[in-house]
């Protein structure tokens, strides 16, 4: 009888074994004390002031990529405001090619992305400040593309259109 005690105790210990797939840890989204208050005289990280970077081809390509992810569902690839979600009933946003928006400063597009406008939600939580500038630059390129003249095409590429 005494001899059986040790094996039985070992078997009982084995019941505590698992494969450690789920380990005790602090869940960092567990609301311990509610949302943290933003200290005075500070801004939230994503809303730090940001200066417009110089326009480069790299910036425009980044802007095009980000525009296609976050903007085309409503504004469409052309920027005319007839995106797929608008076709499904979302209130149409204005076209970028109106005189009003063609005259608007780049800062306007940046601010709309940061704060939202009308039915459009803010995108500050999804698009980083650098990317917002890139998208704004790409919107400028879109506006130019819809009002381009022969003079905008370099001489060596003009033949491709004829």
């Amino acid at each position: 009888m005494k001899g059986a005690l040790v094996p039985i105790a070992m078997l009982v210990c084995l019941t505590a074994c698992d494969d450690m797939s789920n380990q005790a840890k602090q869940r960092h989204y567990a609301p311990a004390v509610g949302p943290a208050a933003v200290p005075s005289n500070t801004v939230e990280y994503l809303d730090r002031p940001s200066q417009a970077p110089p326009v480069t081809l790299e910036l425009l390509e980044r802007g095009q990529e980000r525009f296609r992810i976050y903007c085309t569902p409503c504004h469409s690839e052309l920027g005319d405001g007839h995106g797929m979600v608008v076709q499904r009933g979302f209130p149409p946003p204005p076209s970028y090619h109106t005189e009003h928006l063609r005259q608007a400063p780049v800062q306007h597009f940046y601010d709309v992305m940061t704060q939202g406008y009308g039915a459009m939600y803010p995108f500050a939580d999804r698009v980083r400040p650098e990317d917002r500038w890139a998208i704004a630059a790409y919107i400028r390129a879109l506006q130019r593309s819809q009002n381009a003249t022969d003079g905008d095409i370099s001489a060596d590429r003009r033949g491709a259109l004829e």
Partner: peptide, 26 residues
């Protein structure tokens, strides 16, 4: 159906360990 990019909702996937589950505002 709508042509949304993965990153419209999972927007931290390129820069973070987790792809990001969208908040309700998304």
């Amino acid at each position: 159906g709508l042509g949304l990019d993965c990153r419209f909702c999972h927007n931290s996937v390129e820069v973070s360990a987790t792809a990001g589950l969208p908040p309700t505002t998304t």
